[in-house]
Amino acid sequence: MNKLINAAWLAACGSALALTMSVSTASANDWPTDDVRLVVPYAPGGTTDVLARRVADLLQDELDANVIVENRPGAGSTVATARLARGGRDADHTILMASPGHTIGAAIYPDLTYDPVEDFLFIQNIIDIPNVMVVPANSPYNSVLEFVEAAKEQNMAFSHSGVGSSIHMSGELFKNLTETNMTSVPFAGSGAALPALLGGDVQVSFENMPTVYSHIRSGDLRALAVTSAERSEYLPDVPTMAEIGEHNLDQFVTTAWFGLIAHNSFSQEAHEAMQEALAAVMQREEFLDFAEQLGAEPGQVAGEEFKQFIAEEVERWDAVAEQAGIRQ
């Protein structure tokens, strides 16, 4: 028992020492002067969480400081985002992994206490994941046009991972643009939604690429189109929605994006340090491998450009939510 206590004591001393050392080296570069908190506005598990933990792990090396991931789930991502918008003492060391929930949440949750565009500093878009329009392997539809034609005649059901998810909103956007009959069938997460699609209970879905990629490869699902602006290098034979060229589908360019944001009071110094560190992280082989596994492209926009992108997204989903009647 004594040995055990001694070992614990030693370990505690060691980690305390390591902590002071990391703080002292960090203070030479001004920012960060403290541990950095990376807030994940969702519960553990899921793409946002896994991505945040991967990025935090790599950021630690680049920033030479502890990056602590903190899950603050609630009301889509709006509880954590509202808290970030309030600022406070540690606002200069708090960043948040934002995702489509940021812009869609602004469209569907009433009485938000923050402005999704003006109240935040947009640091860097980290990755973009395209959505894929998929049908079961035994589906009679081999192209988007065939599907649209059929959906004008008869009612189709599309599965998604929950009201307000990017998968749901993509389906609603498709329905609006093509003026077809489609029923939204919600599930609790993509894991629960997939069997309904594989089993043929619903006719189509607009799932995130990583969720369905292996099923497309194994032939259980058929990809009709990807929603990104360019064809995905993982599915080079699958056209983009924009390529379809009919039924207003040229306006159907959307990705599940993930990026880091902070409170407006985030200092210039911190912003620069973060951008530099993120640029390094995004070059790292571990990061690129991870992005490849997700079927994702590294993010393209940062700073003002990122903010502009968010503003457009908010406007777009606002219109879709209005039309679909998803607003309280």
Binding site: P44, D49, F290
Partner: peptide, 18 residues
């Protein structure tokens, strides 16, 4: 099937992908 049945298996799926 590549389908996570609960939150824990969803995280394990993440670990596979990493």
């Amino acid at each position: 099937l590549g389908i996570p049945g609960d939150v824990i298996t969803a995280i394990i799926l993440g670990a596979f992908m990493v």
